[in-house]
Design a protein around this nucleic acid. Structure first.
Lengths: 115, 115
DNA sequence: GCCATCGTCAACCAGACGGTTGAATATGGA
DNA sequence: TCCATATTCAACCGTCTGGTTGACGATGGC
């Protein structure tokens, strides 16, 4: 049986999907617009969005002929809580977050969760 | 290129590996002892431990003929920080954590990160 | 009504994943 | 020295994953 936590972490394991999530952090987007910055087919992006939707990380609503994608941050909450159960590190503060973003730059681009 | 975040989330996506992490939360363990509660082969557990090690979530140290596995919670920190970048939910408090554990019971066993 | 646009579906492919088994490599104890 | 214990390695298997392409169903503009 595949639990919610399984699906959440599996969804987050792909860099394309994480990048999509950070894009949606700024604003809701249509599928075509989500796909625009990527070098893969629209069908591939559509699959990624399906995985994110099944994991509950985003929701999709069709208005007219365009389907809008919206971030659902509450799904991240469960995963975040799971990790914090390990509790051996203090709640994250903004300073640590900024520093982490700096570290990230050396590792790969398009990962940053903030504008 | 496979980033650290890729490996962390992929490692967390498997329920066997999450259960191993919660076991190691209580104490360091030898590979054989880690494998004991599982219905899979020792070799399979050894592979899981390799994945957790490569993701930096645990470390392994050989003392004598037994290899000890130790939780490395700092690796979870990066992933936790990434998620908190979405910041639309407040830092987790203990009450929410207890409630979450309650919710989890209906979903699958062996997932709980606390004793 | 017609055509372009938005998005998904279906079939396919290469490669990774989780598991198995059996052999191999330490190491410790008698 | 010999044997049992602890762990990994290597080869293999079925299934899932991320990608492609081409055809297809809706919807909106003209």
């Amino acid at each position: 049986m595949e639990t919610a936590l399984d699906m959440t972490f599996a969804a987050l394991a792909d860099p394309t999907r994480r990048r999509i999530l950070t894009m949606l952090l700024e604003d809701d987007m249509a599928v075509t617009d989500v796909a625009e910055p990527f070098d893969i087919s629209l069908a591939a992006v559509s699959k990624h969005l399906g995985i994110l939707t099944r994991a509950g990380l985003i929701s999709q609503e069709k208005r007219g002929r365009v389907k809008w994608c919206k971030l659902e941050p509450d799904a991240l909450k469960a995963a975040s809580v799971w990790m914090q159960g390990f509790g051996q590190f203090e709640p994250v503060n903004l300073d640590a977050f900024e520093q982490f973003l700096g570290d990230l730059l050396g590792e790969g681009r398009g990962e940053d969760p903030s504008p």
